[in-house]
Every structure is written in structure tokens, then in C-alpha cells.
Nucleic acid binder design. Structure first.
Lengths: 238, 238
DNA sequence: CTCTTTAGTGTTAGCTTGACACTAATGGCG
DNA sequence: CGCCATTAGTGTCAAGCTAACACTAAAGAG
């Protein structure tokens, strides 16, 4: 039975017209300018020269998430710290070339910087755009981006994914700013710190971040402690 | 641009091997035996005679949700009160015939009874199965069902979708039992009633449900009140 | 040394949650 | 008709959680 899947194209025995299937990724990063999204400039028709989400066609023997990782690696070379399926967009007219169904993913990366952002594959360029300066996007990618933004907002309070947007060591102020940006509202400093620390999933390091003003203690997200607590019925909430 | 999508198959110009795309639906109902799921017995290879989720191929000019509604109507004739995309399953070997990607939906219906459950289209039979008596399912439909069950559990507390499983008029006891079944834990009667009523989205009717024991007041979910409250920043939570 | 900048710290009032037990209304049956 | 069985309906209190609020501490720049 699992053999059948290895027979190659000739085993595609359905008599129906087939849509093409792609994956597209909304990659979020967090930096000085708040939340940013990674876009690529299209090097091919349709929408040549326009900005779009990185993505491409799913190969024949490749899982959907694998396809997303491959495309992202081909076009940008980024290292992801989180990747999850978002939603599948399949309106009949969403691609002018014909029926194309896209399985959208959203991803988080730890630092905006990373290597200078290679742009290869179908992408003519790759660039981070902060939320304020987003251009019009090709296809229905604007909608996809909106859904991803909502999902991020909805999820960050119930799952410890915010840490995936910060470097390994971070200050509590940075964490708070991240939450304020994602949730789009101000948080009280003392209440926030009390809540975060009471979760018992942050490891206090001896390192300090120096900069303007008083040095700030650096913390690390303790994955193990989180896993143990979760197995014990603990529920993350911020 | 929207013209291009109407050109028919010849406008399918991508050079890639194409997976087939299907939709599958997890339909939940609520009755005496708790939560039930609607399954159909397959009338065709592969897995002939096995129970599976209702579903089928997406047509060329049909949206994904439209396809789900059509297949469900063809195979069972049910009237849905809620339908939402769940997740897309695309493991290369999930279908022995070759690459088939399925966009899964989950749906709720107001009453298990409904018309005697027609079984047409590809379905040789259609039947409700309560959670305790679920058979082995074809393909990876067991996994899909599991994901749907989790989603229902996760969502029922934050969105007023529980009402979509009850008739228009219902008792608070019925609502509580529904929540207990979906969440898989006991709830305190007084606390539950206090919380539900304090939301201000239930309309108290003058009707009573008679049966064994003291008659129970019937309530109706007030969609308008909910919509107004929600627009005002109110957040449903139970 | 002074000023600016950012980090760090406790308390209280109001609200929400969870635990808990009895009375009320009806139908069935003896 | 009365009693019993069955389900509906009701209030209080303690504990925990949330939100509001302002000052001191440490460093670098000038």
C-alpha cells in the first residue's frame, strides 16, 4: 500500500482535472521597527516585479511542510525557529493562470539580521518589510498575510511562540515590547514581569545587556522546563 | 485577469506533475449518546466497504468550501449550521492511488435526527457513530477526525459554536451536557448557569420543555445580541 | 557631577472562579 | 390522592487573579 505511492506519475489514476498546488510562507521577524514580514520580488510572470510571499510548487513526493521549508530555503536561505500550517486558499480565480490552490504556512525567525538575505530560485530579491511599509502584494497574498497576522496575535498568548522571534538571550523589556507589538496594546511593566516570571519557564542568566540606561538582565526560554510543566497539565498563558 | 480563470482547462499552463485535490468533512452532531460523527461507507476502490469521512474531488471552478458543501449535500443531504476549514493533509503516501492532497473541513449540524439520512453519490451508506463506537477509517481519516475533535474542544470555549449543535430552543441543562461532552470534564451547574447567563446572549423564551422531572425553561441563542456585543469589544468565553 | 535613559520593584481593590446543598415542579405509580 | 422519583433552579463565601498605580537603581554621556 505504501508502495503504490512510489510508483511515480503513472500511479496518478484519477480522471479529474487537477489544480496546481503551491505552498506560500508568511515569515515574521521582530526587530527595531517592530514586526516585519519577508517578501520576495517575483522574477517571473505573472506579477513580474511585484512583491509576493515566498513559495512555490509542491513536488510529487514531498510533504506540504517539507515543500514550504524547501522553497524558503531556496529563495532566502533563512533558518526557521517555527513553522506551522496556516490555511489553504483555493478561490477559483486567485491565480490568473488557472486553478492554483495554495497551502499557506507561517513561520518565525529568531533575528531579522541573519546572513544578508540571499535571494535565489524564483526570487529576484528578498527583503524585510515592517508592518507600516507593506507594499501591495501579488495574487491574494495580502489576504494570506492578514490571516497570518491574526493567527499570530491569537496564538502568542496561549503558546510560547513569542520566544521564537527573539534571540536566545533576551531582556524582559524586549519580550514585553514584542507582546505589545503583536497584541497591538500597551502592557503594564510590573504586571507583565510578574506574570512571565511566575510561569517558571524562563531561566535567569548571569549575563547583562549593556546599552543606554541601566543594564538589563538576560533570560533564556527554558524549553525543558516548559515541556515538563506542560506534561504536568500546566497551561501557558500570557 | 478574472477572465483568465474562465478559460477552462487549457489555461492550466503549469508544467508540474499535479496532485489530485479532495475535500473531506468531519460532521459532528449531538444527541442522546453524546457527540457523534457522520461517516459514509465507501462504494468504490480503494477501501471499498470501509467507513470514511464524506468527501470527494474538488471541481475545476469550485471554491474549497463550496466543494465541501456540495459533496456533503450529494452524499448525505444534511443541512449544516456551521462549516469551517480544518487543516490540509498532504503526506505523499496518504492515498494508495498516488498523490492526493485533501483539505479537511469540520461541520456542525443542529440535530442528529434530520431526514433519515440519504446516502447517495459515492456513498454506499451513511450513518452516525457516537464517540465510543467509531470504526477504523479509510486513508488517514482517523487522524483527521482526531484533529477535528481537538479543534472543536479548543474552539467551543471561545466562540459560540456550541449552539450550532443544539436545536433552536434548548434548556440550560442540555447546553451544559454539551459542554461537558465536548470538553470531557464535569462542570458545576450553578457556576455554569451564572456564566452563561451573564454573557447576555441568550434569549429566555416563555416555552418549557416537559419530560420527566420539573419542566425546564427553553432558551434561544440571540445571534443579534451576540453580534452587537462582539462589535463592542465583548469576548465570548465559557 | 548632573542629567538622561532604561531596569527593576509591591500593594491594593475589584473581579472572577470554584466549591458547595438545598428547594421546586412535574409525572408516574401504588 | 399521596408519595416517590426525577430533573430544574437558586446564593454565598473564600481564594486567586487582574489591573491600576510611582518610585528607586544603575549605567553612560556630556
Amino acid at each position: 500500500m505504501s508502495d503504490a505511492a512510489n510508483e511515480g506519475p503513472s500511479s496518478f489514476t484519477y480522471a479529474w482535472p487537477r489544480p496546481a498546488v503551491t505552498v506560500d510562507c508568511v515569515v515574521f521577524g521582530f526587530g527595531e521597527d517592530g514586526l516585519s514580514v519577508l517578501l520576495v520580488r517575483r522574477g517571473e510572470e505573472p506579477f513580474v516585479g511585484q512583491w509576493a510571499l515566498p513559495g512555490g510548487f509542491v513536488r510529487e513526493k514531498e510533504g506540504l511542510e517539507d515543500a514550504a521549508r524547501r522553497e524558503l530555503d531556496e529563495e532566502t536561505g533563512l533558518t526557521l525557529s517555527f513553522l506551522e500550517q496556516l490555511y489553504t486558499f483555493g478561490a477559483p480565480a486567485r491565480d490568473p493562470r488557472g486553478r492554483v490552490i495554495t497551502v499557506a504556512f507561517y513561520a518565525l525567525v529568531k533575528e531579522l539580521a541573519q546572513p544578508p538575505l540571499r535571494a535565489t530560485g524564483d526570487a529576484a530579491a528578498a527583503k524585510w518589510f515592517s508592518e507600516g511599509e507593506l507594499p501591495d502584494l501579488a495574487f491574494d497574498h495580502g489576504d494570506i498575510l492578514g490571516v497570518a497576522r491574526e493567527r499570530l496575535r491569537g496564538k502568542v498568548r496561549w503558546q510560547p511562540i513569542g520566544f521564537e522571534l527573539l534571540p536566545e538571550l533576551f531582556t524582559l523589556s524586549a519580550l514585553q515590547t514584542l507582546y505589545e507589538v503583536v497584541l497591538e496594546r500597551q502592557l503594564d511593566k510590573r504586571n507583565f514581569r510578574r506574570k512571565v516570571l511566575s510561569l517558571g519557564i524562563l531561566e535567569e542568566t548571569q549575563e547583562m545587556r549593556r546599552g543606554p540606561g541601566r543594564p538589563a538582565r538576560l533570560y533564556r526560554f527554558d524549553k525543558d522546563a516548559y515541556a515538563r510543566a506542560e506534561a504536568d497539565g500546566f497551561v501557558f498563558e500570557l
